[in-house]
Write a protein that binds this DNA or RNA. Structure first.
Lengths: 170, 170
DNA sequence: AATATCTTTCAAAATATTTTGAAAGTTCGG
DNA sequence: CCGAACTTTCAAAATATTTTGAAAGATATT
């Protein structure tokens, strides 16, 4: 396989993967393209290499910046904007975790807490108890994973790869 | 809020959440409905409560069974099949993790390993090195999370909630 | 202030996913 | 083997998501 071919495949693979992580194909592909590019890329280069429209490129670049997975880079003397991708995989992971938490876990936990405010506790006692247990169990689990996410976000990658990994994997 | 209303909201919330986890809305809603139902439900009851077609109910029930999130339950003397949901949230989580790993992480790692088989190492030395580092970094990260997933799948929930949590959160 | 260069927006079009429902398939009792 | 009771399939319809591209918005240059 040639290097360029490998890069091409990487872009495609990353695009497919992204789909499973709440990132749409194009967004993931742009991200992948930025990852394998040494130089910052302009919107036009991205449009060209991925064969997508300007609007699409613009929208997804903004989303990437929003997630903290890419940033704008102005080149001296150039009017056009350029973009670079975050290449530190630890940071990429942390940012995806943070973003997903914001959009999924936090709202879910808020909803769950709401559901425990039931006012016909008296009748259907058994049924009520079971429901509350279910909701509390889910919330407890969400809290645990949430705390792990927290820890990852704050942790140093070395702590994660080193200490924790040794602890867990042995 | 009334209990039935709370259950209703739970089904809706779980449906929304599922969407972010590669589970489609109906599949998640059926799962939620089974979670809040004390008695096993028949396909017709599910169709009725969620207002969905027979084909849809059937397809998603099979998917749930496939994931290990629900199981068939035959009632003595009844011809019709009934379904129950897995109510142990730990098991639910473990099964979702296992399923996602199978569909996402494993294929991705296979692809990544492939990408390192590049045969024009000599020219573009710098560029080649950078690409290989990127791919290896991603694979190393995937391996770490994979091992955590492994550990979770094998671990006792008490180990997870107790020992690990104390270690991590403190 | 007019023009050129570049970015953003957004309604409409294209694409992808999910749902329907009727028909085909299966299984059981008689 | 037949018909009843149920389950499964799948092509077409409905719905949801993504993409396009032209127009509107910025901002720098002359």
């Amino acid at each position: 396989m040639k290097l360029d071919e490998a890069k091409q495949q990487f872009v495609e693979a990353w695009g497919t993967l992204g789909t499973n992580w709440g990132i749409n194909r194009t967004m993931a592909q742009i991200h992948a393209l930025l990852l394998v590019s040494d130089e910052p890329l302009s919107t036009d280069e991205i449009m060209d290499k991925l064969d997508i429209s300007r609007g699409n490129a613009n929208m997804n670049l903004r989303a990437l910046i929003d997630w903290g997975l890419a940033e704008r880079k102005v080149k001296l003397g150039e009017r056009m904007e350029f973009f670079v991708g975050e290449k530190d995989i630890w940071k990429v992971a942390v940012r995806i975790i943070r973003e997903r938490r914001k959009r999924e876990i936090d709202p879910m936990r808020a909803t769950l807490r709401n559901l425990t405010l039931i006012d016909d506790k008296d009748d259907k006692k058994e049924e009520y108890q079971k429901f509350i247990k279910l909701v509390k169990d889910i919330d407890a689990f969400a809290e645990s994973t949430d705390k792990i996410a927290d820890k990852m976000i704050l942790a140093d990658r070395n702590w994660f790869y080193g200490t924790l990994m040794k602890l867990m994997i042995k």
